[in-house]
Design a protein around this nucleic acid. Structure first.
Lengths: 316, 316
DNA sequence: GATGGTCATAGCCTGATGTTATGGGTTCTA
DNA sequence: TAGAACCCATAACATCAGGCTATGACCATC
């Protein structure tokens, strides 16, 4: 299919004809449009010769629309109002009075960062729709690449293959929102449970409960530094489950602080920082040019202002 | 009042966005529009920066409309279809499938030239509306000047003040369609009724029946040349009335041949050429640029083809 | 990796579309 | 009947939007 070009009708002609219809003279139309009189006069002549159809007739010292001119003037109203509607809608988008932002974030964020963001968005920009899907960082990045979402909140551990600051996020706009401390979870009865800070090396003989694949990867890395290879007996993504397993003395675990934010710590489990300390970073990724979209920019800005201190999140 | 310029939204942008929406890529849009790929790419960037609102996001090796782009694309359909409607109407006008021509002509033409023109217009261009008003030449010229009509059919006598080839028709487009002979009408009982050609000087003592003011002017001019000042006893514009008056022996008259076309010659009146011969010209006047209007041009063309031979009209 | 497709950038060039200055008509008025 | 006021058309000129070609960078697929 080919789109018709009708190269002989441009917006300017339409505006001019309309202005002439309204003012009754070329000079008047020029004033209305903010042009000089010859500009309008010439443009009109060009249009007439393009159409090979006179639009005005000089009558006396003034000018009058021909039938063709009147026909065009009538259409001009429809056309300019369609244009006005379009510019209006665009202005709405630009003015944050409307718009949709599609966000993805990792599961733990679903119950912490995301609800808080939704609340502040609803307050600051009630017109903007925020759609949300939960996705692990790799899936979130894929979605971003294929344009399925506008923003992704991900996490990574230092040295991660999927660290967005490395090549995995090539071409995407990326920044770190927060970092948080990793902690170990021990049964209250554990010999090290009374230490201020737990040495990971001291947990070499324990059974471990691992989280998501990438968290498990991080666990392995930490243990390797501490000089042992952990025995992993359970795997679950669910922080509450982990805490209860630990409380039931099924093993020890390592969790990010954020995971603890919405789970209540059962009796029988304790949280301890560990040494060597390890951290997790929380990132915000955006498609290449997406951040220039006003609604997206507004969301990003609110994410920056988000306070995660009560969850143990700190600025990077 | 001032017309909004929205200088930031031109047709090209709208076409481009629409083409991108339909083809899914910038290259495809360029093909659709018949442009090179960089042209579209650059135009798009200009538009985006004018709007300070991204319209597309690069996704993979292709491109995808942002929300703003989609909004614009939706409007694009409305706008281009409004434009198409306008160009369609204009094409109709240009193609003689529609249009209105407003015509004025002098009374005698109303029952001769005009009906014949209406008939051939209806056959050749059934879509064109022809509106008609009867008007004496001076009024017809005035109407033309103020744009109330498109064409005027007038008449003049040689030397007339209102001869359209003199200054009265300044700025109007003018031409002579026909000339016709003036004839005298005599009672059948008149001494000169048997002459082939009647010498006007021989009618010096008659009572005259004059027609419209300008015809009367012509009569005075002819008689002056013949060396007398006619006695005018009746004045009427109605050719039938004149003929019957002459048949009733109320006087003699001078009429153009066309005036006899629709009146039946009563017994008791005879038509004779006269000497010195005098003529009347029938003109077509058009507003300055009006003849370039297709429907008007078509009407003019048919007027040229009109055959008035059976009424005594001859080409100028 | 090599290849083909897609977008972006650079450099160039043309013409569309403004501008000011000026002239010719037309209308209104002293 | 001038003359003033107004309006349109034309001329000469300036500028930049918007096109093109050539080329580079990136991405996907084989």
């Amino acid at each position: 299919m080919t789109i018709d070009l009708d190269p002989q009708l441009d917006l300017q002609s339409i505006r001019i004809v309309r202005a002439i219809a309204e003012s009754g003279s070329i000079t008047g139309a020029a004033r209305l449009l903010g042009y000089s009189q010859p500009a309008v006069s010439q443009h009109l002549q060009r249009t007439e010769s393009r159409l090979s159809l006179p639009l005005v007739t000089r009558v006396g010292r003034s000018v009058k629309l021909t039938e063709a001119g009147q026909v065009l003037a009538r259409h001009a109203i429809a056309i300019t109002s369609a244009l006005d509607a379009a510019t209006g809608d665009l202005a709405d988008l630009a003015g944050l009075r409307t718009g949709t932002v599609r966000l993805a974030a990792f599961p733990t964020a679903s119950s912490t960062i995301v609800p808080r963001l939704l609340a502040s968005m609803a307050e600051a920009h009630p017109g903007i729709q925020l759609s949300y899907v939960e996705a692990q960082p790799p899936e979130a990045v894929a979605l971003l690449r294929e344009g399925g979402i506008d923003l992704a909140v991900t996490f990574s551990y230092p040295g991660d293959r999927t660290d967005p600051h490395r090549d995995s996020a090539n071409g995407l706009n990326t920044e770190t929102l927060f970092t948080e401390e990793m902690v170990v979870v021990l049964p209250a009865t554990h010999p090290l449970a009374n230490e201020e800070v737990v040495d990971v090396a001291g947990l070499a003989g324990e059974r471990w409960i691992a989280g998501c694949p990438r968290c498990r990867g991080h666990l392995l890395a930490v243990c390797e530094v501490a000089g042992f290879d952990p025995t992993i007996t359970f795997e679950t993504d669910n922080a509450s489950a982990v805490l209860n397993m630990v409380a039931s003395n099924l093993g020890v675990a390592m969790l990010p602080r954020l995971a603890l934010a919405t789970a209540t710590l059962p009796v029988g489990a304790v949280i301890r920082p560990h040494t060597p300390q390890s951290i997790r970073s929380i990132h915000l990724l955006a498609g290449a040019g997406t951040r220039r979209v006003p609604s997206v920019a507004a969301t990003v800005s609110l994410l920056h202002k988000l306070d995660g201190g009560d969850w143990g999140l700190v600025a990077p």
